[in-house]
């Protein structure tokens, strides 16, 4: 038992590692901000493309979505980080991570937006067009607000996935939270920094995960 506490919950080591982890946490949050922002915009555009009646828009969008849903994000990341330099594109780890996760994540957000837009009855758009709103206006003021509300749990759960996803950036030596923690582990030969990192992730994500469950239950009631 003492071994266990010493190896996993060593407060001294946690205290030593904390400044390093805090720096990592800031990188993680920056990464999340950029990837979620880009993912939402890209996802929305892709969803609109996938729902378009124009074939030259629809099929490329659907193809993009399926391609990047099928590729593991880590494979995408390694490909962008280690593969593209062969083509003469040398990217910093941060940029490589942003590109790889943007590709992965916009595909996921696109699926959520698509389901949301499809969940809004056609009559809503027709009513809006009948009152003289343009197509973009109809989308912005009538369809999207309802769509987003209908898929809010999925949007949230995708956001949680992005935060978890950023931990993969440690593989390409981007000094985010997990990388910093693992660094501290290998220096101290003690797993407490990893546990500390896990606790930080839990502190951020547990409330969101609870909220998602609440939502799903709430939807199930009626």
């Amino acid at each position: 038992m003492n071994d266990f506490i010493d190896l996993f919950f060593n407060l001294d080591i946690m205290a030593q590692a904390w400044p390093l982890l805090l720096k990592g946490l800031i990188v993680t949050l920056q990464l999340c901000g950029v990837v979620i922002g880009l993912g939402l915009v890209g996802g929305l555009l892709l969803a609109l493309g996938a729902l378009s009646p124009r074939r030259w828009l629809k099929w490329p969008a659907v193809g993009f979505i399926d391609l990047f849903r099928a590729l593991p994000p880590l494979v995408l990341l390694v490909f962008v980080f280690s593969g593209l330099p062969f083509a003469g594109l040398d990217l910093s780890p941060f940029v490589a991570v942003v590109i790889a996760f943007f590709l992965n994540n916009s595909a996921y957000f696109a699926e959520v937006f698509r389901a949301g837009i499809q969940s809004v009855p056609k009559g809503q758009a027709e009513a809006a067009r009948a009152t003289g709103l343009s197509q973009p206006q109809t989308l912005a003021h009538v369809v999207l607000p309802q769509a987003v509300r209908n898929v809010l749990p999925d949007l949230l759960s995708n956001t949680v996935e992005v935060v978890k996803l950023t931990s993969l950036a440690s593989v390409v030596s981007l000094s985010e939270l997990l990388y910093s923690a693992n660094m501290a582990r290998s220096v101290t030969y003690n797993s407490s920094p990893l546990i500390l990192a896990a606790l930080v992730y839990l502190a951020i994500l547990w409330p969101l995960v609870r909220l998602i469950s609440r939502y799903q239950r709430g939807l199930a009631v009626h």
Binding site: V163, S191, L194, A198, L205, V209
Partner: peptide
């Protein structure tokens, strides 16, 4: 279920792989 959904799997993998041998 909550912890499994909230923790990044890679964190747990590292803890299991590098931490458990200490025990």
């Amino acid at each position: 279920a909550d912890i499994g959904r909230a923790l990044p799997p890679l964190v747990v993998i590292l803890i299991f792989y590098f931490g458990l041998p200490g025990l």
